[in-house]
Structures are given as structure tokens and as C-alpha cells.
Design a protein around this nucleic acid. Structure first.
Lengths: 154, 154
DNA sequence: TTGACTTCATTGCATATGCAACGAATATTC
DNA sequence: GAATATTCGTTGCATATGCAATGAAGTCAA
């Protein structure tokens, strides 16, 4: 048996991008389990809804472009999520009066009602994470803060 | 204009599952840019390769099942990644002699050569992250450690 | 104003994905 | 040891995704 030259000793389980991916998957999944069955909302849809529930400044509505930028999703993903949400009667799309290229998205009453149920659920999950991590949470926050600042810079 | 009851004030940008997802996306992407074009390897394929490059214990080969468990990917994803890698001549699949349901995966010489290039690249990226985060890195590690322990428990 | 660029959102297309179903092999139970 | 249940890996299928191309609208410069 030929003895191959050894490969560098690399430990995937301590590789930061990998750990982040697993942590993200597991937490998103843990939360999604709570609302998917009950409300029939996917993760991309949830992100759009959350963004609409919290208009920045005084803005009543938001464009696809805004969401793409702030929510870290491709615009086609946003567009499709928005279409599904519209079909479900949770949001409405309207042409912006000033710039007719823009599509302004806004929650319907039904959408608002849904979010009134959904948001507390998410907030409770956040509390749960903080409680479960205890002291380690602050460090995680700082680390994520620094990392996000770094990788979004370019 | 009717004044709707206000929704809870929820800040997506400080929601841990969301931050983790963004951080994971960005870092994976930043790294993938370095090897995808050069080596034609996707992220699922890369994960399988890494796992094969580091046999646990003395094991020379690994089954799809092993990878599914340790690498946090669906078995169909692993299976398909493995098929592509086999087609590319980077790994070989063989029936396990003892339990003929198992498929043992192993790097070919070509696969080993690829990993000899790829692993240093990943290790350098890890160094880079640690350097860029400086003091915040330790906290991130502790936080991820605690979080992964928590969410994989059940 | 006209014509060249840019921006916005959607869509076509090829590929990737998750899930359930399947066939083959093994384990378990009686 | 026969029947049943479970495990392993692959695949069919419906859906989701990324990317490029498109069309519509707006901007800019001369």
C-alpha cells in the first residue's frame, strides 16, 4: 500500500463559515417549525413580512429594492416571495406614484393580523436563545457584529 | 385614515437566527468565490471532500450516512454531491464488504491533489477571519459553541 | 428633444433542493 | 427461520433557487 503524502490537518467542525451555516440552519429551522405549519409562511416570506411590519422612518411602504438591500436576499427571491404573499392576501403591491418603476409593498389587514401573532413568537424565540446561551450570548453578539461589519464592507 | 393597532416592535437586524444566516451566507460566499471558479467545486461538494480528507479515527473510508450525520446535510444532498464528485474523478464509491447497504467513499489521487490545494486556502481564510475579528473572535467561538450544543441537543 | 445609460422588478431557464417513495440489505421478533 | 421492521442510499417529483435577459421607467448629457 502506497503511503500518500498527508493532507493538512483541517477540522471542519471548527471552521467558522461551517459553524455559522449549521447554527443558522438549526435556529432558522427550530423557529420555522413553530410558524410554518401554523401559518403557512416560508422563510423568505417571513423576512419580507417582518420588513413590512417595521417601516423604517415614517415610510408606510417599502419597495422590493429596499428589501433586497436590507434583508440580504436576491431580488428575484424577494419578488417571488412577494407574489406568493400577495396571492395569499397578506400584502398588496402598488405602483409608486413618484417613480413608477418601484413597487410599493404593504401589509393588508390580514397580513397585519398574521404578524400580530407571528412577531411575539419570534420575540419569544429570541428570548429563549438568550436564556439558553446565558453568558455566552453577549460574546456571540459582539462576534456577529464584528463579522457582519467585516464581510459586508465590500 | 384608520389607525391600526401597532405591531410589536421587532428588529430583524438584531434577530439572532437572521444574523447567523447572513453571516453564514457572506462568509461561505466569500470563501466559495476563491475556489469555485478555480476548482469547480460547489459548497456541498466541498463539505463532502473535507470530510473525506479527514478520516475520523483510523477509518480509511466513510459512508454517506456518516457524512449526513456529521456534516449537517440531507442524505440526498450528500448522495448527489458524491455522484458529481465521482463523475469528476475526485472520489470513488464502493460497496462496503461487511454491510452491503453502505457505500464507502474515498478520495482518489486526483481528489487528494485537489484537497492539497484547497485545504490551505480554507485554513488561510480561517486565519483571516480570526485576524479580522481580533478580540471579538473568542466570544464568537464561545457563543457558537454554546448555541450548537443547545440546538443539536434535541 | 433625442439617444445612450442606468435602475427596478419580473420572468425564463437550467440547476439545486427537500421530501417521500422505493429497492436492496440487514436486524429483530416471534 | 419466516415474517416484519428498520436502515441505507438513490431517485422521482414538485418546488425553490441563482443568474441572465427582458421590458418598462427614469436619468443624464449634449
Amino acid at each position: 500500500m502506497t503511503n500518500k503524502p498527508p493532507l493538512p490537518d483541517f477540522d471542519l467542525s471548527h471552521f467558522t463559515p461551517y459553524r455559522l451555516a449549521v447554527a443558522a440552519d438549526r435556529t432558522s429551522e427550530e423557529l420555522a417549525r413553530q410558524y410554518r405549519a401554523r401559518f403557512g409562511v416560508s422563510i423568505p416570506e417571513w423576512r419580507v413580512l417582518v420588513h413590512l411590519a417595521k417601516p423604517v422612518d415614517g415610510a408606510q411602504t417599502v419597495s422590493v429594492r429596499d428589501i433586497e438591500a436590507r434583508v440580504a436576499m436576491e431580488k428575484s427571491k424577494v419578488s417571488r416571495a412577494a407574489s406568493r404573499l400577495e396571492a395569499a392576501g397578506l400584502i398588496v403591491k402598488a405602483q409608486d406614484a413618484g417613480d413608477r418603476r418601484l413597487v410599493r409593498l404593504a401589509l393588508t389587514d390580514k397580513g397585519r393580523a398574521l404578524m400580530a401573532d407571528l412577531l411575539p413568537l419570534a420575540m419569544a424565540y429570541q428570548q429563549e436563545i438568550e436564556a439558553r446561551l446565558a453568558d455566552a450570548f453577549a460574546g456571540l453578539e459582539d462576534g456577529l457584529e464584528a463579522l457582519l461589519r467585516e464581510v459586508s464592507a465590500r
